[in-house]
Design a protein around this nucleic acid. Structure first.
Length: 400
DNA sequence: TGTCCACAGGAAGATGCGGTGT
DNA sequence: ACACCGCATCTTCCTGTGGACA
């Protein structure tokens, strides 16, 4: 008791490395967005008519992850809302991330979420989708107003539920008497629009803006600016920021990742009682970020998924590469042990594809000629993650 | 040169759950 | 009580296919 008490005492007394940790969180909205002035100006030009209660052109934004798309859009919308409020312009901006599970990953939920933005609750299920649309139309058309709808990670939406919903959204305006709605799509995938229905494509991407990746120097500069706000003076040792931006530059200029890494490195350093952040903290942070991402993804999957992964973990030490059929056999024995239903191979095939998508395994479809076509699977994460995964799975599946 | 394996992966639909309005 | 809805998960049935082997 006394011991733990003094731990907290010491904890309070010791100076934190952080001055303002929230600066390093993804929710942080900086005062200015650097190196994106050009894109922001362009977007502002396109969206400005909304403030005169005219419908702006629909806008499409492309760029890899961590290139400041979301940040820039939030920045623009934020200042538009401010102006609108000051001048009592009936303007509303709605930002939705389509990647969020159970929020915006189906047509019903997306519209329900939009309705919620107007302050009305929609039950999570039960109503016909048409009905939800009607409620949305009604709310939208109550007053004369311009609504800007930002759909972030829009490629996730269409991959899951097709592009019909986008078609509906682009046609909303013709159904509305008072209001106007402008759509802004944000996509990580540069080729996203190519496999879109031509009608949707032409009306959705009336205007397009591309966000190029940041280069290493820009990343360094951004990181330095954030670090100054986030950490105590002298908390970061020389070379840490440089290495951090080098990591990010290697990952196609993903600044978000770099900022994440810096934050975790700070946490690691703090926990180890160090007064500064050094390179080894950064290395550990990188391992931790990677491991957390994977383990998080796995624990949120259904048991059957976990069974398949466990089967793979059992085979992996014996063979470097293995095939769908082998995995299925091992999976069956695991199901027997755990008293789970044995699913069909068709389903397992899909599960393997999902595992591949999550980056846990590396699956390649190969032909063994006479001996058929199959997935060649190899584990693609490093040893200490595998050990941790195995522990987590054994616990979750209640295997000894 | 054609055959044929061992799957991939599309389509449609069954099932069970948590919900709705009447 | 009832018919109906959305959704995740899974099954059934199906067509497609790269290339080693006879």
């Amino acid at each position: 008791m006394l011991k733990i008490g003094s731990f907290f005492e010491n904890y309070l007394k010791s100076d934190s490395l952080f001055k303002e940790k929230s600066v390093l969180l993804s929710t942080y909205l900086p005062q200015e967005v650097v190196y994106r002035e050009e894109q922001i100006q362009e977007a502002a030009n396109i969206l400005a008519p909304a403030l005169r209660i005219e419908k702006p052109s629909n806008l499409f934004i492309y760029g890899k992850t961590g290139t400041g798309k979301t940040l820039s859009m939030k920045f623009i919308l934020h200042s538009m809302e401010e102006i609108a409020q000051k001048n009592t312009i009936p303007f509303k901006a709605i930002y939705l991330n389509c990647k969020l599970k159970r929020v915006a990953d189906t047509e019903y939920r997306l519209i329900a979420q939009l309705v919620k933005e107007f302050g009305k609750e929609i039950p999570p299920t039960g109503l016909p989708t048409d009905e939800v649309y009607n409620i949305f139309y009604g709310l939208l058309d109550q007053n004369k107003q311009v609504v800007l709808l930002v759909l972030d990670e829009i490629d996730h939406l269409t991959r899951k539920i097709g592009d019909e919903i986008l078609y509906n959204l682009t046609r909303i305006n013709s159904e509305l008497k008072n209001s106007q709605i402008g759509l802004i799509g944000i996509s990580n995938n540069l080729t996203f629009a190519e496999h879109l229905d031509p009608r949707v494509r032409s009306s959705l991407s009336e205007e397009e803006i591309i966000f190029p990746p940041y280069n290493a120097l820009q990343i360094q500069d951004i990181l330095k600016k954030r670090a100054v706000q986030a950490f105590q003076e002298g908390a970061i040792q020389a070379g840490v920021i440089e290495k951090c931006s080098a990591y990010a530059a290697r990952e196609h200029g993903d600044v978000r990742r770099a900022i994440d890494l810096l934050r975790v490195a700070g946490e690691v350093a703090e926990r180890s009682g160090s007064t500064t952040i050094n390179l080894s903290h950064l290395d550990e942070a990188e391992r931790k970020v990677e491991a957390d991402k994977i383990i998080d993804a796995v624990t949120n999957q259904p048991k059957q998924f976990q069974c398949v992964l466990y089967a793979i973990l059992l085979i992996a030490p014996k063979n470097k590469n293995f095939f769908t059929g082998e995995i299925y056999e091992v999976y069956q024995t695991i199901c027997k042990q755990t008293r789970f239903n044995v699913l069909t191979q068709r389903r397992i095939s899909d599960t393997l594809a999902e595992l591949d998508m999550l980056g846990i395994i590396n699956a390649k479809i190969i032909s063994k000629g006479r001996y058929g076509r199959t997935r060649e699977v190899a584990l693609s994460c490093d040893q200490n993650i595998i050990i941790k995964l195995k522990e987590v799975l054994e616990k979750s599946l209640q295997l000894s």
